[in-house]
Design a protein around this nucleic acid. Structure first.
Lengths: 366, 366
DNA sequence: CTGTTAGCGCATTCAC
DNA sequence: GTGAATGCGCTAACAG
C-alpha cells in the first residue's frame, strides 16, 4: 500500500477528495480511455458517448490533474525567467521600465507559444529551484554566469544576452549597441552638437561597455575629446548627480547622451537647475523606455532598446530549440530605435522644421 | 507497450536519454529505494552506501524528474499571479512602480515560502491555463471578477483585494484607503492648505472609490467645497492634463492630492508651467511608489500603498490556507505610509522647521 | 467503436 | 540495513 498524500488533499476533514478521471468513467458507465478521448477530442467516438462523457465530467466538476498529464506527456510547458537582483533585493530591476517591459513581453510571448513563465531569483543557483520542471530558462542580463553555466550543465536550454556567446547550448539575443551609439551620436552631430557628453552607468553590462567603446571610437574618428561621466551606483540619485557633474564640467557640453536607466524628467530638471535651455543650448537623448519622456516640456528624445522585440526573439529561439530539437545555439541582434523629440532637435532656424508629425525615426540597420 | 514520449525528450537523434533513478541504482549496484533515500536524506542508511549512491548520481549527472516527484507528493509548489491588463496588452501594469513592486515582492515572498510564481495573463479564464498545476492564485486588482469566480469554482484558493470580500474561499489583503485619505488631508490642512484639490484616476478600483468618498466626507465635515478632477484615461498624458485642469480652475487650489499612477516630476513640471511655486503656493502629495519623487527639486511627498507589505501578507494568507488547511477566508488591512517631503511642508516661518532628518512620517493606525 | 492494460519516474510501505 | 512491490492520475498502445 502507498501513503498517497491523502487523496485530494490539504485538509483531512472537510475537503471532498478531488474527482479523478476514473470517477467520471465509473459514474458515466464508461472506461477511462473513452472519457479521456472524449475530453481531449481524440479518438473516434460516437457523438452520443462523447457528449455523455463530457456532460458527466462537467456535472461532477472534474478537472484533469495537470501534474499527471505532464508526467505522461513528458512536457511541463514551463519556462523560467531569471532577472538580476540589485543590492541583494531580488527583482528590484523590475522597477525599471526596461525590465518591466522585457518581463511582461517575455511572459506574453511565452504564453502565446503555450508556455507559462516562472519568476526565479537571480543569485541563487539552479539547484535551488531544481524541483521545478522547467523546460528552458531565460536569463535576463546575467551579472555573473554561474547561473547560466549551471543550467547548461543540467542540459536545460538557455537564452540570454550576448555575453553568453560561445557557450554551447546558450542562445542569445542582444541589441546592436554599436549601431545604436553611432546612430545617436550622428544624430546629435547633425543637429549641431560639437561637444556631446556621455553619462554612463557604471555597470558592466555588455551593452554599456560597447556603447562606451563606440563613443570613444567615434570621438577619435572625429578628433574630439571624449567627455564621459560614470555613475558610481545604480538609482536615480546617483544618476542625477552624474548628470550634474557632466553639466558643470569646465567646458560645458552642448549635448548629453544619457546611457543609464534614469527618469527622463529628472535630466531636464537638472539641466534647468544649471542654467541650460533644452534644446537651445543643450541637446538631450536618453536611453530609456520610460514614457514620461513624451510628456515633459520639451519632450525628450529617447533611444529605445526594444525590450519587447528582445523578449519575443528570445522566446522564439527557445521554442525553436525545444520543438525542433535545435541543438545549435542561435543568436539574434535586434536594432534599437531612436525616437527623436524636441529635446534633441536644433531649434528651428526658419519655420517649423521637419514634418511636425515626425517625432520618430528609426536607426537604419547596417 | 507505451509510447513514452521517447525518453529524455526533445531531439530524437542526438539527445542522450535522461538519467533516471533506476539507472543510478543499477550503476551503483543498489536498489531504487536505497538511492532515493540516500539522495533525499531519509531512511537510515550506512554512510558508506549513502555516499556511494550520491557519488554515482553525481557522476552520472542524475537530476530527479520534478514532475514525477510532484505527482508522487501531490504538491507542485506553484502559485499563479494574475495582474490586470491595460488596453488589451497583458501585464502593461507592470510598468507602474506599484505593480512592479507588488510583483517582485510577491515572487520573493512566494519563493521564501518554497513556492514559485507563475505569470498569468488577466482577461483569460482559468480554463486557458488549466494544465498548470497551480496550488493557489494571486489576483492583483481584479477588474472583472470572472477570473476569481472561475478559480473559486475550481476550488483553487485565491487571494485578491478587498473587492472579493464575501466570496467563500477568497482571501484578501487591501490597504486602508479611508485612513490614508484622511491622514493625507489632515496633513495638508495642518500645513495650511484650505483648498485641497483631488486628482483621481477614473478607474473603478475600490481604493479609488473609497478615497473619493473619504475626500467628500472630509470636505463636508469641514464645510469646504470638494474639487475633484477625474482622468478620462490611464497613462501619464491624460494624467498631466487632469493636473493642469485642476490647476487652472477658477479658484486656484492651494494643495494637490494626486491619486493616480503618474510620474511625480511631471506634476511638478505642470505646476511650474502654470505659475505655481511648490510648496510656496501649492502643496503637493502624490500617491506613488516612484522613487523619482525623492530626487526632484523640491522633493515630493508621497503616499505609499505599501505594495511589498501587501504582497507579503497575501502570500502568508495563501500559505496558511494551503498548509494548515484553512478553509475560512482570511483578510488583512495594511496601513499606508505618508512620506512627507518638502513639497507638502509649509515653507518654514522661522528657522529650519522640523527636524531636518524627518522626511518620513507614518500615518498612525486608528 | 470501446475497454483492458501498461507504464511515465518517483517515494514509500512492508517484508526480508 | 536493504530491496521488491505499489500507486499518484493520466494517455496511448493494443486487443476485443
Amino acid at each position: 500500500m502507498t501513503s498517497a498524500p491523502q487523496r485530494g488533499g490539504r485538509t483531512a476533514r472537510t475537503a471532498p477528495p478531488r474527482i479523478r478521471l476514473v470517477d467520471v468513467a465509473r459514474e458515466a458507465g464508461l472506461s477511462k480511455t473513452t472519457v479521456s478521448a472524449a475530453l481531449n477530442g481524440t479518438g473516434r467516438l460516437s457523438p452520443a458517448v462523447r457528449e455523455k462523457a463530457r456532460e458527466t465530467a462537467r456535472r461532477m466538476g472534474y478537472r484533469p490533474n495537470a501534474t499527471a498529464r505532464q508526467l505522461r506527456t513528458g512536457r511541463a510547458r514551463l519556462i523560467g525567467y531569471v532577472v538580476g537582483e540589485f543590492a541583494g533585493n531580488p527583482w528590484t530591476y523590475l522597477e525599471s521600465p526596461y525590465f518591466a517591459q522585457l518581463t511582461s513581453a517575455t511572459a506574453a510571448s511565452a504564453l502565446r507559444n503555450g508556455y507559462a513563465l516562472v519568476m526565479l531569483p537571480a543569485g541563487s543557483l539552479h539547484s535551488e529551484w531544481a524541483d521545478l520542471p522547467l523546460e528552458a530558462v531565460v536569463v535576463a542580463d546575467p551579472v555573473d554566469h554561474r547561473v547560466v553555466d549551471d543550467l547548461l550543465a543540467a542540459r536545460i536550454p538557455v537564452v540570454s544576452d550576448g555575453s553568453v556567446d560561445g557557450r554551447p547550448g546558450a542562445h542569445w539575443v542582444d541589441v546592436d549597441a554599436e549601431e545604436a551609439a553611432h546612430g545617436t551620436l550622428e544624430h546629435l552631430a547633425a543637429q549641431g552638437a560639437r561637444r556631446t557628453a556621455l553619462v554612463m552607468s557604471g555597470s558592466t553590462t555588455r551593452f554599456h561597455r560597447e556603447v562606451l567603446t563606440a563613443y570613444r571610437d567615434w570621438c577619435a574618428a572625429r578628433g574630439c575629446t571624449p567627455r564621459v561621466t560614470v555613475t558610481d551606483e545604480a538609482g536615480n540619485g546617483p544618476a542625477v548627480r552624474a548628470v550634474e557633474s557632466a553639466l558643470t564640467a569646465a567646458e560645458r557640453p552642448d549635448a548629453l547622451f544619457v546611457v543609464e536607466e534614469m527618469s527622463p524628467p529628472l535630466v531636464l530638471d537638472a539641466a534647468r537647475r544649471h542654467g541650460y535651455d533644452v534644446p537651445g543650448d543643450l541637446l538631450v537623448v536618453c536611453v530609456s523606455e520610460d514614457d514620461t519622456a513624451e510628456h515633459t516640456e520639451p519632450p525628450i528624445s529617447t533611444l529605445s532598446l526594444q525590450p519587447r522585440e528582445i523578449a519575443e526573439a528570445g522566446i522564439e529561439l527557445l521554442v525553436a530549440a525545444l520543438e525542433n530539437g535545435e541543438e545549435e545555439p542561435s543568436a539574434r541582434l535586434v536594432a534599437t530605435r531612436l525616437l527623436v523629440r524636441e529635446s534633441s532637435r536644433r531649434p528651428s532656424r526658419g519655420a517649423a522644421a521637419a514634418s511636425p508629425q515626425a517625432e520618430c525615426t528609426s536607426v537604419p540597420p547596417t
